[in-house]
Simulated assay, not measured.
Amino acid sequence: MTIDELGEFGMERMDEAAIEEFLTSHGFGVLALPTDGAPYVVPMSFGYDGGTTLYFTYVVGEESQKADLTEAAEAATFLAYSAESAFSWRSVVLTGTVTEVPQNEWARHAEMMDDNAWHPDIFERAMETERIRIYRFDVDDWSGIRHTGLPSGFEGESSDATAD
């Protein structure tokens, strides 16, 4: 079924304003990078610039599969989502390119990274040891879908029923 056909069940496409609002209010998702086999998929926090760019902070060691795959990738996919209930959820899929941000430009992006990015504690400790890198995800295309509320015709069971 197409998303349009699923409209009768309460699903709808998100417009650009709704996608931007969602990205502004959420700070985590899943990054998928291409490999020779199955994609490399990793949860990521992100900062959003309010336009068409996300920023990721990578914690890296001497070797980093994520960083290596990012450098080799011509394109990547990112999924941001929320699921409050079975009848209230949203997801946004973005495709684009990921490139490393030079360290001398980090300060320019710091405020935006703090605005909505969710950061696990490991980031603070990694920053102290300088084992992080910042990458920008330039969005080429995005789409979003949502389901917000019960589908038309769904009544559910009445709470007025009494036991015999």
Score class of each variant (00 low, 15 high):
residue 145 I to L: 00
residue 57 T to D: 05
residue 53 T to E: 12
residue 140 D to N: 11
residue 130 E to F: 04
residue 53 T to G: 06
residue 145 I to R: 03
residue 87 F to L: 15
residue 110 A to D: 13
residue 13 R to P: 00
residue 70 T to M: 15
residue 18 A to P: 02
residue 21 E to T: 15
residue 9 F to I: 03
residue 24 T to L: 10
residue 117 A to Y: 04
residue 29 G to H: 02
residue 39 P to D: 05
residue 147 H to S: 09
residue 43 P to G: 09
residue 119 H to G: 06
residue 10 G to P: 08
residue 105 E to Q: 09
residue 97 T to A: 11
residue 102 P to R: 03
residue 44 M to Q: 03
residue 55 Y to G: 07
residue 28 F to D: 11
residue 56 F to Y: 12
residue 144 G to F: 02
residue 143 S to L: 04
residue 114 D to M: 12
residue 140 D to S: 14
residue 149 G to F: 03
residue 65 Q to D: 12
residue 159 S to A: 15
residue 108 R to E: 14
residue 52 T to R: 09
residue 120 P to C: 09
residue 88 S to G: 00
residue 41 V to Q: 13
residue 40 Y to G: 01
residue 71 E to V: 08
residue 5 E to D: 14
residue 86 A to G: 11
residue 121 D to N: 08
residue 37 G to H: 02
residue 107 A to F: 07
residue 36 D to G: 12
residue 55 Y to E: 10
residue 164 D to P: 15
residue 163 A to K: 04
residue 66 K to R: 14
residue 52 T to A: 13
residue 69 L to Y: 09
residue 158 S to E: 14
residue 91 S to V: 01
residue 107 A to I: 07
residue 21 E to R: 07
residue 112 M to P: 03
residue 152 S to L: 08
residue 102 P to Y: 05
residue 117 A to L: 11
residue 73 A to N: 09
residue 121 D to P: 10
residue 125 R to Y: 10
residue 145 I to G: 00
residue 159 S to V: 15
residue 62 E to D: 15
residue 129 T to D: 13
residue 154 F to V: 14
residue 49 D to G: 01
residue 138 D to L: 10
residue 142 W to A: 13
residue 60 V to I: 15
residue 157 E to N: 11
residue 27 G to S: 04
residue 83 A to S: 05
residue 64 S to V: 02
residue 26 H to G: 06
residue 21 E to P: 00
residue 52 T to F: 02
residue 3 I to V: 14
residue 34 P to A: 12
residue 162 T to M: 12
residue 81 Y to D: 07
residue 10 G to Y: 11
residue 24 T to N: 13
residue 47 G to H: 03
residue 7 G to D: 05
residue 138 D to F: 02
residue 25 S to T: 14
residue 155 E to I: 11
residue 57 T to P: 00
residue 55 Y to D: 01
residue 11 M to G: 05
residue 66 K to G: 05
residue 4 D to W: 00
residue 136 R to A: 15
residue 82 S to K: 05
